[in-house]
């Protein structure tokens, strides 16, 4: 029993130490730097200023911010539309098949995402795989290229981030009690209706969790749009990277990054609200039990 306690203490404290050292501390440092001034020869000097945030009100930055939001939103939507049916099939497939299908979702993670992004060039470029396939099928008469376009960026982001959507969706769909769907059917609800009124509300936490996990990296990833999109437009990730590396303007980069963190906090709050709401739905027994336990 005592050994068990010691193990508990050890594991909990190591998790806290890890989070504190590698998540909290860097973000705290970033937050502090965002209120400091930049020096002539130093990355930042200890002089308090709000200037960095007011500099973010520049129309160029606002444009960069909206372009990034647009890109991230569309990618998230595409991931959701592709990921939901995928996760549904995964959760409803036979127990024997499931680990294999799951493996297929996870396998791409074994290769570095930067390398996978470069590999996409071979598929998308002029005379690339897609181009050759279209010519072979007679759908195109000559060389065309999908590289350096918005399409390429969406494809790259969707491809890289899809597993982050599928995994939480799978977890929440798998938990879904099939008896509830049977009950809905018995009460005369059609497939569409029972999906809309039963499946969707109960899997909402998975949808929100997956969307957050896709949206934020899509907002911050700079290499996918840079490599596949041609970098003719600047995005938030590149903007932040440039402040730190090219312009050596750490406080401004820190301010932009802090805004991103605040957005994350906001989204986390939305997630909490949505999972509460799902738990409160009177349909579930689990929800009732949980509600009782909370009270």
């Amino acid at each position: 029993m005592q050994a068990n306690n010691r193990f508990r203490l050890f594991s909990i404290s190591s998790v806290w130490l890890w989070l504190g050292l590698f998540a909290l501390l860097p973000n705290l440092a970033l937050f502090l730097v965002s209120f400091l001034d930049r020096g002539e020869t130093d990355f930042f000097i200890p002089v308090f200023t709000l200037d960095n945030y007011s500099r973010l009100l520049d129309p160029a930055f606002i444009r960069i911010f909206w372009d990034s939001m647009y890109l991230a939103s569309i990618s998230t939507l595409v991931c959701l539309l592709l990921g939901y049916p995928f996760a549904y099939l995964l959760a409803r497939s036979s127990k024997r098949m499931r680990p294999w299908l799951m493996l297929l979702v996870v396998v791409p993670f074994w290769t570095n995402s930067l390398i996978r992004t470069y590999a996409l060039i071979i598929i998308l470029k002029t005379q690339g795989l897609i181009n050759k396939l279209f010519i072979w099928l007679g759908l195109a008469d000559g060389p065309f290229s999908l590289m350096y376009s918005d399409f390429a960026v969406f494809m790259g982001l969707t491809y890289t981030l899809l597993p982050f959507m599928i995994l939480p969706l799978y977890a929440s769909i798998e938990k879904l009690d099939v008896r509830l769907l049977d009950a809905a059917k018995d009460l005369g609800a059609g497939t569409l209706r029972s999906f809309w009124h039963v499946t969707l509300p109960l899997t909402l936490p998975g949808i929100v969790a997956g969307s957050i996990l896709v949206f934020l990296p899509a907002l911050g990833t700079f290499y996918v749009p840079e490599i596949l999109g041609g970098a003719t437009n600047m995005l938030l990730g590149t903007f932040i990277k440039n402040q730190f590396l090219v312009a050596r303007d750490w406080p401004l980069g820190a301010a932009a990054s802090t805004i991103l963190t605040l957005l994350l906090v906001l989204l986390a709050l939305i997630y909490r609200m949505s999972s509460r709401k799902a738990a409160e739905t009177p349909l579930t027994e689990k929800g009732k039990k949980k509600g009782a336990a909370d009270a």
Partner: peptide, 9 residues
Amino acid sequence: KDYWEKLKS
């Protein structure tokens, strides 16, 4: 840098 951001946005 300001011009570069302007150009790209």
